[in-house]
Design a binder for these strands. Structure first.
Length: 327
DNA sequence: GCGTATGATTCAAA
DNA sequence: TTTGAATCATACGC
């Protein structure tokens, strides 16, 4: 019999506690079969509440039973986990990074946004998956926090009850502060192990959600026609230097309803493919040169400035195609 | 089903 | 960090 068991067994010596014989002790003793840690924490609390209402002998038996069922079996394993568990730290870090734990600063949505950007597709296309991801992450977050709160509350309530019992017990036998401290530590360890299970489950849920979301990463969707036109217009009107600045990329991204990195990808692909096969793109280049010229003419006509054909630096697509300058 | 087009990813170089 | 080049994976038209 270890210290903790002895401590509670000592409850038998108490007499004359003015507690009414309420509650059904049998219902508590039945719980000897509830050795599974998965037992609902609410049930545990109810049992504890019932214990406090029992007569002392019954309380002793009940407490022993409960203690056996919940703590003794796990104390050995738990006691050896004194130093901060690197696994818990990993779980904490991950939950924090995913925006599940910590302040709700949009961490989850940021992660979702990053994943969405990686997944590609225009926001129009990706928004369904994106919001879906966010909604599910929020759901996980909510469940995590409510469970955590529940466990924390249960832990503090259970600690209080045990403390009360020990206080009562201290009337008949000396109980050292160290003993009490140890008891509390055991309870906290037990509850923190439950918390770890919760964290682990939450991490698993997030991982599954994330992997499902990222599975669609390579799912390619063509940009819509208008977006392609905008990009091509820019490309062919800046053919001598088709390297949009960051601002230009942002502007294009906005116009096309895609992300800046998609704009970068598009220009990267376009440059290399154009360079590889200029002949093939000649027709397209001419088309956009004409289009740009017409647009410019329209603009200048509208502005009553017919003498300023503001065709950008393309112009040379007819005949010898311009060569993309190397940077 | 096949060939081509196209967006995304990876990796090395500048 | 950005870009070029190669490559992958999927969409699309035939």
């Amino acid at each position: 019999m270890d210290d903790q068991t002895r401590m509670l067994a000592g409850l038998g010596g108490l007499g004359g506690l003015s507690q009414a014989d309420v509650g059904d002790p049998d219902s508590v003793r039945k719980q000897q079969s509830l050795g599974q840690p998965q037992q609902d924490i609410g049930d545990i609390l109810q049992q504890i509440m019932a214990i406090t209402d029992e007569s002392l002998d019954e309380a002793q038996a009940s407490m022993e039973a409960l203690f056996d069922a919940y703590f003794i079996s796990s104390v050995r394993g738990v006691q050896e986990e004194d130093p901060p568990d690197p696994q818990i730290m990993r779980l904490d870090n991950m939950l924090l990074a995913e925006g599940v734990s910590g302040p709700e600063k949009g961490g989850g949505s940021a992660a979702a946004a990053a994943a969405a950007a990686a997944a590609g597709g225009s926001p129009n296309d990706g928004s369904i998956e994106h919001s879906d991801y966010r909604a599910k992450l929020a759901q996980i977050r909510q469940i995590y926090h409510s469970e955590l709160e529940k466990y924390e509350q249960a832990c503090s309530e259970f600690t209080n009850h045990v403390m009360n019992l020990l206080r009562e017990q201290s009337r008949t036998r000396p109980i050292s502060p160290k003993e009490i401290e140890r008891m509390v530590a055991i309870i906290h360890r037990k509850f923190s192990s439950i918390q770890m299970q919760l964290k682990q489950s939450t991490c698993e849920a997030v991982m599954i959600l994330r992997s499902r979301f990222l599975d669609a990463r390579r799912k390619r969707r063509n940009f819509n026609k208008q977006a392609t036109e905008v990009l091509n217009e820019y490309f062919y009107s800046h053919l001598s230097n088709p390297y949009p600045s960051e601002e230009a990329k942002e502007e294009l991204a906005k116009k096309c309803g895609i992300t800046v990195s998609q704009v970068s990808n598009w220009f990267g692909n376009k440059r290399i493919r154009y360079k590889k096969n200029i002949g093939k793109f000649q027709e397209e280049a001419n088309l956009y040169a004409v289009k740009t010229a017409v647009d410019a003419a329209n603009v200048s006509a509208q502005a009553s400035q017919a003498n300023s054909p503001a065709t950008p630096n393309s112009g040379k697509v007819h005949g010898s195609p311009p060569v993309i300058s190397s940077r």
